[in-house]
Amino acid sequence: MSDLATLFLHAAFVENMPLTFFLGLCTFIALSRRPASAVGLGVAMIAVLGVTVPLNHLIYAALLAPGALGWAGMPALDLSYLSLIAFIGVIAAVVQLLEMVLDRFFPAIYTAFGVFLPLLTVQCAILGGSLFMVERRYDLAESAVFGLGAGTGFAVAVIMLGAIRARLAYADLPDGLRGLGITFVIAGMMSLGFSAFAQMVAS
């Protein structure tokens, strides 16, 4: 139990997706202009990462890993090179499914998400979560916790950045630095701050 809690904190803070691995930066920068859209993106990230990482783990373990097809009489088969296409397909399907379910049963949440949901298909952080899961050989429970933790870390970072940028709209910055430039500098400072968490969890 405490192992899983440690893994959660590790995924959320020590290995924060956007700030230490630079994953998902495109949406991280583009959708953090307003706190409201940052919150929407953060919640969507937690939901999609929490579902796709364990789902991809099941598919990888049952079909794609080296020797996984032993139950079908083909123990020598190694399909792991197909994992990229399989993961992308699963992510696209889950995002589409989530969109339809929300549209049908929770229209209020659906309108709040707006354009973010379909965009998540091509989010580096989500694909990255699944790829890290394979590289580090997590089991099912660990991959679920890892997905939720990584999503929470992304949400925390993007909401903080959104709040800071909302204040910056009134700041008097040098012309060339306005917008994208200052956002990178702020992200760098947040990354510096998050690196302090590295000592928090002994890995």
């Binding site: 040098p174 012309d175 060339g176 630095l177 994208l180 430039g181 500098v185 760098g188 510096l192």
Partner: peptide, 17 residues
Amino acid sequence: APSAFFLLGGLVWAVRS
């Protein structure tokens, strides 16, 4: 990690100047 953010921010600033 942080230096990459700072350098890219600085690069954007330089290009836009």
